[in-house]
Design a protein around this nucleic acid. Structure first.
Lengths: 103, 103
DNA sequence: CAGGATCCAATAGGATACTG
DNA sequence: CAGTATCCTATTGGATCCTG
């Protein structure tokens, strides 16, 4: 927790509190996915934001990137243990949204 | 959940997934607070962003605003029932950040 | 297929001054 | 005290084109 964080909640939100990060993590909860497949699960994300998001998540150690040395290129993303530790939170956020928008 | 939301998780993040909203909600978990007191609990927030944030949260029905007809002005903010339903999630996010940044 | 590079528009956010 | 208004900068994000 660096000087820019004012409390643990803030620290967490700085890691996953953006438009796309939670969605990427959420879709990896069931297991690793190939890059293109993962991206297609997130309608509306641009190529640029997808790349930027997975790069950030990788830098923060929440996901891992596996490159297969084949042609054409094949890349898979999957959650690290640290990323997996967010599972309950991600499911809670999804569940809350589901229940809330019924009203 | 409008057409801009692609899933419940996205819906939730569009309500609270910003830099300041979770912090405002978190500090109101224990009860209503006077405007100035609430703002002081969030170091670094500018006057503009504080006002904008509580306006958004009020518009979305997560907090309520009570104005006391006195001089000088007195305003209190407190969670609505809908806002209170986020309690477990906010605490989880805070707890995760606390534990994660130990590593 | 994966993703880098570039350009541009939209939004977020800060600093300051001001008002009832 | 609480909040508005204004000006400005920084960041986010989309569209397009390009490469191994």
């Amino acid at each position: 927790m660096n000087k820019n964080n004012i409390c643990p909640l803030d620290y967490t939100m700085n890691l996953i509190g953006t438009k796309w990060k939670p969605l990427v993590l959420f879709h990896l909860l069931e297991g690793g996915l190939r890059s293109g497949v993962l991206q297609k699960k997130i309608p509306g994300i641009s190529n640029k934001m997808f790349t930027q998001t997975v790069r950030d998540l990788e830098k923060d150690g929440l996901i891992s990137r596996k490159v297969f040395p084949v042609v054409p290129p094949k890349v898979e993303y999957y959650l690290t243990d640290r990323g997996k530790s967010l599972k309950d939170i991600l499911r809670s956020l999804d569940k809350w949204g589901y229940e809330d928008c019924q009203n």
